[in-house]
Write a protein that binds this DNA or RNA. Sequence first.
DNA 1: TCTTGATTTAAACACTTATTTGAAACGCCT
DNA 2: AGGCGTTTCAAATAAGTGTTTAAATCAAGA
Lengths: 211, 211
Amino acid sequence: MTQCDTKTRILDSAEQLFAREGFHNTSLRAITSLADVNLASVNYHFGSKDALLQAVIERRLLPLNQIRETQIRGVLAQAKEEGIPPTAADLLRAFIEPTLEFRNSSPGAHDFISLIGRSLSEPDETVRNCFLALVLPIFQLLFKGLCEALPQLSPAILLTRLQFAIGTMSHVMCMGSLSVFNHPELPTPLDQNTLIQQLLKFVHAGLETPE
Amino acid sequence: MTQCDTKTRILDSAEQLFAREGFHNTSLRAITSLADVNLASVNYHFGSKDALLQAVIERRLLPLNQIRETQIRGVLAQAKEEGIPPTAADLLRAFIEPTLEFRNSSPGAHDFISLIGRSLSEPDETVRNCFLALVLPIFQLLFKGLCEALPQLSPAILLTRLQFAIGTMSHVMCMGSLSVFNHPELPTPLDQNTLIQQLLKFVHAGLETPE
DNA sequence: TCTTGATTTAAACACTTATTTGAAACGCCT
DNA sequence: AGGCGTTTCAAATAAGTGTTTAAATCAAGA
């Protein structure tokens, strides 16, 4: 078992447990025993539990954000080339589709999305700030694009609505379809594809509605 | 200091700390020292930490839900009386306005709304289920009303969108305006009233958009 | 006033927590 | 083979966790 092996196994286990049980409800003992490594190795490789969380988030979020950024920049570039403003729908898709692809790419990625979906409303500042610092640049880029796409809306209102949209999306990413809604008296939930399609429609309509 | 005094002080302190620090990150010692009561009194009065959380949630959510229910039933009744379907906007307002009024009624209520706003995506089943069981009836009532208001939408899609709407609303309730968005390069956030008004517009537009 | 039940209190309980330590084991290069 | 830096390991540390206990305190009824 090489060094890299141990580190990755810790990251994988921590990701899974942080996502499913919550950060403060997950002990290092639970992580190391799931990863089948020694308890002390997490402090040896990462320094502390907080730093482990940081590493868990950065491992996936840095590459994901890079993809999102190139997608959004692609939409902006093509619009500029054609001499027309980008559409809000294209910008939203550029933001959310990489997230979905990534989420379906592996079980660990799925857990990870739950984790960051919850990070926005995380009470613990350590957790929240760690996440926020990494996504702020993307939010800013998306906001800039939406200002071009929807010039009829004032920037302040647009920013608020972007906040709503991000809230909705992370909520859905985080929970998929909620268990409560699996109820005999209610219709059966939609499949994954339709769900996402509806999600885009929903936030798109919300963003574009007149002031 | 009477029995009732001790109990409410524990509830108030627990509410504040659960909301601001998270359930698992809040110790009974932190609660009892903030409430200035003896450590053992929480187990004496409530039985356990889990039961205390349940009590914290029930104390506020039961009356709040009662108000929401009468408001929604009022909208439905008036529509029936006038022989026209209720509007989605009225139903949404009937759901969210009591929440807002309640949130502004006291600092403790504000903390409480943060707490339940996060409960939907709470990883811990104990916490989540405790909350979900109490709000399911309201969700069902709201859904029934929306089916009448928007008959052109299939129930399955409407349910999904209601889920989006609730996600958005609890997200906003929980965080108010996010600290990240207080950034020099971004417009200053809207005031509370405009924020809520925009929130209603946003989810209303999302709900009503064609399939 | 004395008794009875409810409440409060300090202390202890039995675990779990994150983190540290020093020795053992490892791979790797000369 | 021997030495060296890196990694693993069991064990211990010190502090924190929810919960329980038994004595002390209180309010009120007989």
